[in-house]
Amino acid sequence: MAYPADCPVAGFGVRGCGAMLARPAECRDNMGREERLRIGVCIKQVPDTDSHLRIADSGRGIDDSDLNWVISSCDLCALEEALLLAEAEASGGEERPELVVFSLGPSRVEEALRKALALGADRAVHLAGEALQGGDALADGCALASALAKEHCDLVLTGAQSDDLGQAATPAVIAEVLGCPYAWLVMAVELDSRRGSLRIVRELEGGMNEVLRLDLPAVLAIQAGINKPRFASLRGTLQARKKPLRREDCADVDVGLVGTAGAGTETEAVALPPAGAGGVVIEGVSAEAAAGELIAHLEREAVL
């Protein structure tokens, strides 16, 4: 499946990247059928939500010297959804799609990629190039889009938002750069690989969902709760050591689009959120005492 030749990213300096991203006709095999479907999953390594967070001395970020790093929760759901789609294809008599997992970051992200391989992904691509680091969602989305295009992914899945920055922007940027249909907050996916299309359910406000049809290639941002991610088996963990993990530096992408140079924003400062507006902290010596004090307050507020 070809990406549109006219990449819509005019004015951003990547006009014409559609040609770079286009899947060449010779990629199809000579049997007359399309080659094996390939699903790309982008995962981000983030600090564990339960980590104790300290502000770095620079005041511009968090101190990362003593953090537990995990795969962002929505990205884990995206990987699980990719595994489920691949299994459904295989059990429906189709060839099992290949799953390639991508992550951008320093060397520690290879741990996240190995975990994804242990969970069942076939190959991993680490966007490790020095020039790719330090970007924001725009820059990271461009780098990931270029790596995804190089691997000719037919379907791209990633989390709806990250647990650290939570901008919900990277998947939209990937779709925009690839010139693909896009949906955010996806709660169900059905793949029709023969027709090259997807039927998806997307979450809306107020407890409503909408049902959409998209053609491949497409980018889906998966919402938490779509599935329950599996745990890695010992066998999977052992197999993961032997699966291919490739380092990618996206050397063919304009360095002005990625990393610090491609970032549209800079974080000036991070701080603890402002304290609550005069909230009362109840410190009873026992649970009974605290409960009694709370009830007295609530009676005074006339809410009981």
């Binding site: 549209g264 000036e268 400062a269 402002p274």
Partner: peptide, 8 residues
Amino acid sequence: LRAEVRPK
């Protein structure tokens, strides 16, 4: 945490 962000 809260971040102060500057557009470039």
